[in-house]
Design a binder for these strands. Structure first.
Length: 266
DNA sequence: AATGGGACCTGCGCGC
DNA sequence: TGCGCGCAGGTCCCAT
């Protein structure tokens, strides 16, 4: 799914158009995506609520309402929020006081909607590691020092550091010239510093571009995010490295497709 | 504690 | 044209 830059993009898009608007009705086309409470309570709890603020924690979007409730949205692999929505692929549609709809689409039905009294109660959120843009160098070195695991799966471990997924893990490691299988605690101090720099730079640049549209991710308006044109390795297996022309390799790591340059990344 | 596999779902592209 | 397979941005759960 959407990783941190995509979710941050949607958060900023939502802020521009939804603040102060009221939900007048909720139309549930597929109750499976509503994790709590039951669909009828979910609908009742949201109808009449006014949108007060939008938050993001890692890959989770949180909509705060004036009545004190929170709607947590996890898009997982194929979730989308679309405004104004036309309902064509909607799993849940939120009708708003401006006469338009906010559609939650999700082809694969992995996405989750939670209506809560306090988003801090969500177990997944309680387990999250720090936001990558808020980690400093000393802290990052300390975090890595006790980890013998391979660096790429570690970057995607949301309890270690939150918000990085499969695409950005690949791009970040390419930029830091680090092989995805390197044990985390065996990176040199210089490599750890470079790695953190590339984490922050990559995520910031991707946010600036509105994220990476591959397959399903789109912005709130339906427009694509343009960071995909900056991708150097993700999805480029068999093609020449843009730096050294060596063939980009694809391997499975932790069950996930992993792209890297065997020459540039050591 | 860490890793690996399968599960949750739908749909696409590929080779035969 | 049609079928079966592998694959997909995430996370959870269980076994080892």
């Amino acid at each position: 799914m959407p990783e941190l830059p995509e979710v941050e993009t949607i958060k900023r898009d939502l802020e521009k158009v939804l603040l102060g608007k009221r939900i007048t009705d909720v139309c549930v086309h597929n109750p499976k995506v509503i994790r709590q409470p039951a669909a009828d309570k979910f609908k009742k709890g949201l109808t009449g609520a006014v949108i007060k603020s939008i938050l993001r924690k890692a890959k989770v979007l949180i909509i705060e309402f004036s009545n004190g409730k929170f709607l947590a949205v996890h898009l997982k692999m194929t979730g989308q929020l679309v405004y104004p929505g036309d309902g064509t692929r909607s799993r849940v549609s939120f009708h708003l006081s401006d006469g338009k709809n906010l559609d939650f689409n999700d082809q694969r039905l992995f996405g989750e909607l939670h209506l809560l009294d306090d988003w801090r109660h969500l177990k997944f959120i309680q387990s999250l590691g720090p936001e990558p843009l808020e980690v400093n160098s000393g802290q990052f070195k300390e975090m890595l020092s006790s980890k013998k695991t391979k660096i790429k799966p570690l970057l995607m471990d949301q309890t270690f550091i939150s918000g990085i997924g499969n695409i950005y893990a690949a791009e970040i490691l390419f930029r830091a010239r680090i092989h995805p299988e390197r044990p985390a605690n065996r990176l040199s101090d210089e490599e750890k510093e470079l790695l953190l720099k590339e984490i922050k730079d990559t995520l910031k640049e991707a946010i600036h571009c509105g994220g990476s549209s591959i397959d399903d991710y789109i912005r709130l308006s339906g427009e694509p995010g343009s960071y995909v044109k900056h991708h150097k390795v993700y999805g480029r297996g068999g093609k020449p490295c843009l730096t050294c022309k060596t063939t980009i390799k694809r391997m499975a790591l932790g069950g996930r497709g992993t792209f890297f340059c065997p020459q540039c990344q050591q």
